[in-house]
Design a protein around this nucleic acid. Sequence first.
DNA 1: ATATTATGCGCAAACGTTTGCGCTAATTTG
DNA 2: CAAATTAGCGCAAACGTTTGCGCATAATAT
Lengths: 335, 335
Amino acid sequence: MSAATVSRVLNGKSEKYRISKKTQDIINKAAKELNYSPNQLARSLRLKRSNTIAYINPDISNPFFSSIGKSIVKYARASGYSIVLCDSEENTEMEISLIKTMLEHKVDGLIISPVGLKYAHLLELHKRKFPIVLLDRYFPKVDIPYVTSDNYQGALEAVSLLIESGHTCIACIQGLKNTSPNNDRVNGYIDAFRKYGLSVDNEYIIGESFGEENGYIETKLLLKRKNVPTAIFAVSNLISLGALRALKEEKYMVPDDISVISFDDQPYSQFLSTPMTTVTQQSFQIGQIAAKMIIDQIASKGNIEQRSILLPTRIILRGSVKSRHSHKKTGMHKI
Amino acid sequence: MSAATVSRVLNGKSEKYRISKKTQDIINKAAKELNYSPNQLARSLRLKRSNTIAYINPDISNPFFSSIGKSIVKYARASGYSIVLCDSEENTEMEISLIKTMLEHKVDGLIISPVGLKYAHLLELHKRKFPIVLLDRYFPKVDIPYVTSDNYQGALEAVSLLIESGHTCIACIQGLKNTSPNNDRVNGYIDAFRKYGLSVDNEYIIGESFGEENGYIETKLLLKRKNVPTAIFAVSNLISLGALRALKEEKYMVPDDISVISFDDQPYSQFLSTPMTTVTQQSFQIGQIAAKMIIDQIASKGNIEQRSILLPTRIILRGSVKSRHSHKKTGMHKI
DNA sequence: ATATTATGCGCAAACGTTTGCGCTAATTTG
DNA sequence: CAAATTAGCGCAAACGTTTGCGCATAATAT
C-alpha cells in the first residue's frame, strides 16, 4: 500500500484514481486502527495552502474585538479554516512584525483591524493579490476591501440626539487620531453641529486613544474647565468606562450633572449606575462578513474585485442622556 | 550558493560550519535584497516543531477568557511562539475535534480551558508526554498540570461575607456542574455555612451553566419562590449579569431588596447601578503562568514533572452586599 | 616536497504529503 | 486468440527547509 494510494483514498479521490473498493476498505480500516491523522504541515507545504487565516487586532481583551474574534473563529471553522489570533497592542511596528510571521507561517489570508496610521505594508500585500480584508479600521485613500460600521452616521445620530436634548456644550472624547473610525465619528460629531446651525468648538474635541485611561484623563481635565460641558460623546466603550471613573471620582452624576453617550454597546451597558445610551455595532455580523470575504478571496486566489461593506449602527436609548428642555420653555411637541 | 549554506548563515550557524565572512556577507545582503523570508512550514516539517501553541477555551468572547488569551498571546510571542485560538463553545465534541485539528497542525503544545466534563482525551495526550496545561478548569482525579484560582477559598470568603452580614438564606447560582471551578466554588459555599454552624439547603443551589442566560433564568425562578433569598452568590461574571437583568425586570433593588456577590471582577463592575462586590481572579497572571509552563514543557520534551498552580483570589468590597444587622440588635463591635 | 591539518562549502537525505505519469494485469472486443 | 481497452496501483518528483558527512582546496607542519 503506497503512500500515494493512501492519500488518494483518504482524500476521497478513489473514484478519480480508480482505487478498488477492497483496497479502500483496507486503508480505511487501517487508518481507523492506527488512529492515523495527516500531517498538515507536509500537506500545506505540498498543497501551498494551510487552511489557516490570521486575525490581527489591536487588543484582544477589548470585548469589541474579542466578540468579533469569536464570530470569525466560528465562521472560519465551519468552512474548514483555523484562525491564528494576534494582538498588535496598538503598535504598528508590532503589527508589521506579526504580519511577517504570519506570512512565514503561510496563512492563506489575513483579516486585520490595523492600528490604522500606516498602510504601506497592507497595500503591498493587497497589490500582490494576497487575500486581505480590513475590519473596523480602513484607509479611505486605499482600495483594500474592508468591513466596518457606518461610524459617521452613528456619531451623527448620537450627537444629534444630544443636541435635540438641548445640549450645546458637548465634549467629544476621541480615540486614536487619524484612524478611520475616529475620523468618521468625529466628523459625525462636527456635522451634527452644522446640521443644527451650531458652531463647533475644537477645544472640546479631545483625547487620543481608544483606551480606558484616555477616557479617564480627558474627563478629569474636562471637569476642571471653567465651562464644563453638559454632555460627553465617548467614541468607544473603553473611553466611556474611563469617563465614568472620572465622573464618579469627581462626584458628577449621570445624567443629572452631565449626560453621556457612548459608542459600542456591551452586555453590561444596561446595568450601569445609569444605564448607558449607546450606539451599537453589529459586531457579530462584521466578523462573519469579514470571514466570508477573506474565504472568497482565497478561493478566487485574490482575483476577485470585492466591494467594501458598511454596516448600519443603531442607537439604544437608555438613561444617560438628560433633556435640558424645561417643559415650559420648550416649543417642541411630540406628535 | 547552496541552500544548505544559506540556511546555516541565516540561522546563525556560520561559526559551527565555518562559513567565511565573505560568503556570509553575500548571503545576508542577498537575503535583504530579495526580502527573503523562510517558509516556516518546511522548517517545521524538517525540525519537527512549529513554534505554535494552541489555546482552546469554551468562549473567547467571555472577558475572563479573552483577557487570559491576551496574556498568553503576549507572553508566548515574547518567547517566539504564535498562538492559535480556538473556541469550543462549551462543547466537548467540538473540543475533541479542535484538539485533533491542532495536533494535525503540529502545534508544539496545548493550553486548554476544557469544558471539564470529560478528560480521557486530555489524559491520553499527557500520557503520551505531549505538552499540555489546563487553565481554569482541571480534573482533581488526574495529574495533568493546571493553573487556576483558589476557587474554594474565594467562594468560602465570599459566602462568609454574606453570612457575617446577617444573611442566612443565600442562593448559589452555579455554573456547569461537575467542573472544577464550579465544584470548588459550591463547596466553598457549603463550607461557609458549616463554618458558621448553619445548615445548607440544597434547594438554593441552582443553575447549570456559566452563561448569562442561566443567571437570568435562575434568578427569575428564585424570585417566584415563597422564600426569596436575601442574597445571591453568582458563580461567574456572566451569571451575575443575567441575575441583574432578572432583578431589574422584577424591580428588585440591589442591595436593598437582595444582596449580590459575584465571582470575576470586570472593569465595569464598579460602575454598575450598585457597584458589585466581587471575588477577583488574577487572570493576567494565570495566562502568563500557563504560557510559561507550556513552554517549559516543550523545552523539556514533556519530561518535566510540573506542579500545578493555585492562585489566590481577593474580595473587592463594593456596594452590592447589605448588612442585615440592625445596629441595635447586633452584638458585634468594630475594633 | 610531502604529509598533515584546517578551512569552506556542497551533496543528498529527510520531514510527510500530493499528483502526473506510466506500468502491469485483467477484461473486453473483434 | 490476439489486440485493444480498462482497471488498479506504484514511482518519483515536488514543496522548502536542515544537517551529517565528505570532498576539495588552502594553509601549516615536517
